[in-house]
Nucleic acid binder design. Structure first.
Lengths: 187, 187
DNA sequence: TGCTAAACGGCGGGGCCCTCCGTATCTTAC
DNA sequence: GTAAGATACGGAGGGCCCCGCCGTTTAGCA
């Protein structure tokens, strides 16, 4: 006895596939109705499988998020704690800047009453990044009151602000390096 | 012979006043129709005075922007070039975080064909901030390849990313300080 | 006081989001 | 194999919004 009916699973997959293309093409505010139309289902079905736009964005971004989490685990064993953290953050920037909708999925949405099980995407990333940051703090390469959430928020901010540039990934990377370096040579 | 008819000016003022409240209440994507209704004019009239949402946001933010420009001129004479630049940027953060819509008005919108006379808001800010940055660069307090536009973009990113937090201004300020400090004590 | 041009605003088209509810389809049990 | 029940579907309608058109009003000038 499947937890879900077979046709429901099929539709879920179809919708998700179409949504990936549509979000890639039109960004985080792609039309849900358009997705439904292309997938050949009713708009209600889309809403049934993905109650909120955010839910859909998170599902679309899932693979990328998991890849980033895996990368964090890889880097956790690296010798250079600061370098590992920066490398990982840089990849988060690169992914978010090139895969449209990812940044929006990561952005916290204060509109929710209970923020417990929500933000599954950003929660996963934060958990994966925690060891990296912890090690960097221990090595004195990062301030103690910084959280992974802070870093993710900064990254998301950079990506959001560069979203409309001619070459978002390049610009995002530039600003990220600038941020890492601090305002300038002399502090 | 007025460049504009008297009633047009009146309506402009009415709409702008209503828009300020509405944007303050509902953020950058306040309903233009709601503004028209509250102002007691047709929605076409709103569009006539403010062809794009961005135009309206810029008009709404004009006073704040000018205040920030004035502040930049004040700080231009300060002895501590780095301190002056940081002080100014901090105020940009504070303004943007507390006045809803300002960040959106500042955000570059790549949708425009000719970006010449556009972004009057951010253009003004950039011009006002240029001397501050120039001095900081001369004093070696900022990297040479940094532009005011970069700094504004970073600030806007921080504000956008913290927009949905419980206390946006506080969070934005935190992240700004974190950015200025660089990732950590050891670089 | 007329005339002209500027400004207004109602209206309709198109789109999107959201909800409801009758219907079709899958599962399971017999 | 079939009948019953649960599950999922999707069309339709309401509400809101942005946008453009165009007949009408009104301010400003002679």
């Amino acid at each position: 006895m499947p937890a879900q009916r077979a046709d429901a699973r099929r539709n879920y997959a179809r919708i998700l596939a179409v949504a990936e293309e549509e979000v890639a093409a039109h960004g985080a505010d792609a039309s849900l109705e358009q997705i439904a139309r292309t997938a050949g289902v009713g708009s209600a079905t889309v809403r049934r499988h993905f109650p909120t736009r955010r839910a859909l964005l998170e599902a679309v971004s899932r693979q990328q998020i998991e890849a980033l989490c895996a990368r964090a685990r890889e880097l956790a064993g690296s010798g250079d704690s600061r370098g590992a953290l920066l490398e990982w953050l840089g990849e988060v920037v690169a992914y978010s800047a090139s895969a449209r909708g990812l940044a929006a999925a990561l952005a916290r949405d204060g509109a929710s009453p209970d923020s417990l099980y929500e933000n599954s995407c950003s929660a996963a990333l934060e958990e994966a990044g925690a060891p990296l940051l912890r090690r960097a703090v221990q090595d004195g390469a990062a301030a103690e009151d910084v959280t992974v959430a802070d870093l993710i928020t900064l990254v998301v901010g950079i990506v959001l602000a560069t979203e409309h540039h001619p070459d978002p990934p390049a610009e995002a990377d530039r600003l990220f390096r600038l941020t890492v370096a601090g305002l300038g040579p002399r502090s």
